[in-house]
């Protein structure tokens, strides 16, 4: 993916909102079934590749892919993550 650079800075109110939402995300991840939670943690927080996850968890790479997809679907549902609906321009 691209190297990213952003110039935005958060104000005090946004920081409070951010803290609340981080807690909400943490609770959502905790609600995942353990099989899903472990692939999400390994992928997003430990930065493991699919191959590494497959080795560590002892499952085929195809299962890593499907578990990650289903875990993310559940998180999207739990968090009601809303993709932007406007135009990209």
């Amino acid at each position: 993916m691209a190297e990213r650079r952003a110039d935005d800075q958060l104000g005090p109110e946004e920081l409070v909102i951010q803290r609340e939402q981080i807690e909400r995300v943490r609770r959502a991840v905790e609600q995942l079934p353990v099989d899903f939670r472990e692939v999400i943690v390994l992928r997003e927080l430990e930065g493991c590749s699919y191959k590494e996850i497959a080795t560590m968890v002892g499952i085929p790479i195809g299962t890593v892919m499907s578990r990650l997809a289903r875990a993310r679907e559940q998180l999207v549902t739990l968090l009601h993550v809303a993709a932007p609906t406007g135009d990209t321009q």
């Binding site: 951010q18 991840v29 472990e38």
Partner: peptide
């Protein structure tokens, strides 16, 4: 975008305990 937003949200977690067996 939804997936990328989710990624940013999860990665913003300051800590998280991995399942014990891992």
């Amino acid at each position: 975008w939804g997936r990328e937003d989710l990624r940013v949200l999860v990665r913003a977690l300051p800590y998280f305990s991995a399942p014990p067996r891992l």
